Deep mutational scan, measured.
Amino acid sequence: KELVLVLYDYQEKSPREVTVKKGDILTLLNSTNKDWWKVEVDDSQGFIPAAYLKKL
């Protein structure tokens, strides 16, 4: 599985998104959309702007 590093805090703005903190390491589930990547946070899944993430 691929991991990503969160570069900036992000507060979810819709139920399909997730809240993350700078420095979090998350599992990347889908990066086919260049603007929004799907990640797994704890036991939930959701989208975060790709610009907030860096592949490890």
Rank of each mutant, 00 (worst) to 15 (best):
K1L: 12
K1D: 08
E2I: 13
E2H: 11
E2S: 11
E2R: 12
E2T: 13
E2K: 09
E2Y: 10
L3A: 05
L3W: 12
L3M: 12
L3Y: 14
L3G: 02
V4T: 02
V4G: 03
V4M: 02
L5N: 01
V6W: 01
L7A: 03
L7M: 08
L7G: 00
L7K: 05
L7I: 08
Y8L: 09
D9P: 05
D9I: 03
D9H: 05
D9Y: 03
D9T: 05
D9G: 05
D9M: 03
Y10G: 01
Y10A: 01
Q11Y: 15
E12C: 15
E12N: 11
E12R: 15
E12M: 15
E12P: 14
E12W: 15
K13G: 08
K13R: 13
K13V: 08
K13L: 10
K13N: 10
S14H: 11
S14K: 07
S14Q: 08
S14L: 08
S14W: 10
P15R: 10
P15Q: 10
P15D: 12
P15E: 11
P15Y: 08
P15S: 11
P15A: 12
R16E: 11
R16L: 13
R16C: 15
R16Q: 12
R16S: 13
R16V: 10
E17C: 08
E17I: 06
E17S: 09
E17A: 09
V18A: 06
T19M: 06
T19L: 05
T19F: 06
T19V: 06
T19I: 05
V20K: 01
V20I: 05
V20N: 00
V20Y: 07
V20E: 00
V20R: 01
K21M: 07
K21S: 08
K21R: 13
K22V: 06
K22H: 06
K22S: 08
K22L: 04
K22F: 05
K22G: 05
G23H: 04
G23R: 02
G23T: 02
G23C: 07
G23L: 02
D24C: 07
D24R: 10
D24F: 07
D24L: 08
I25L: 06
I25T: 05
I25M: 05
I25S: 01
I25E: 01
L26V: 11
L26A: 07
L26W: 04
L26N: 00
T27G: 06
T27Y: 10
T27E: 07
T27Q: 09
T27S: 08
L28K: 01
L28S: 01
L28E: 00
L29V: 11
L29Y: 03
L29N: 02
L29P: 00
L29E: 02
N30R: 06
S31V: 06
S31W: 09
S31L: 03
S31T: 10
T32N: 12
T32H: 10
T32W: 09
T32C: 14
N33Q: 09
N33E: 10
N33S: 09
N33A: 07
K34V: 09
D35C: 14
D35Q: 11
D35G: 08
W36T: 03
W36I: 05
W36S: 03
W36V: 04
W37D: 00
W37C: 03
W37L: 02
W37V: 02
W37Q: 00
K38E: 15
K38L: 15
K38F: 15
K38D: 03
V39K: 00
V39A: 01
E40I: 10
E40Q: 14
E40L: 12
V41S: 12
D42A: 14
D42G: 15
D42H: 13
D43P: 03
D43K: 11
D43T: 11
D43Q: 13
D43I: 07
S44W: 15
S44I: 15
S44N: 14
Q45S: 13
Q45L: 07
Q45D: 09
Q45A: 13
G46W: 13
G46P: 08
F47P: 01
F47A: 03
F47G: 02
F47W: 15
I48G: 01
I48K: 01
I48C: 14
I48E: 01
P49Y: 05
P49E: 04
P49Q: 03
P49G: 03
A50T: 05
A50H: 04
A50D: 04
A50K: 06
A50I: 05
A50C: 08
A50M: 04
A51H: 13
A51N: 13
Y52E: 03
Y52C: 14
Y52K: 05
L53Q: 00
L53R: 00
L53C: 15
L53N: 00
K54C: 15
K54P: 04
K54M: 12
K54A: 10
K54L: 11
K55E: 06
L56Y: 07
L56W: 06
L56D: 02
L56Q: 04
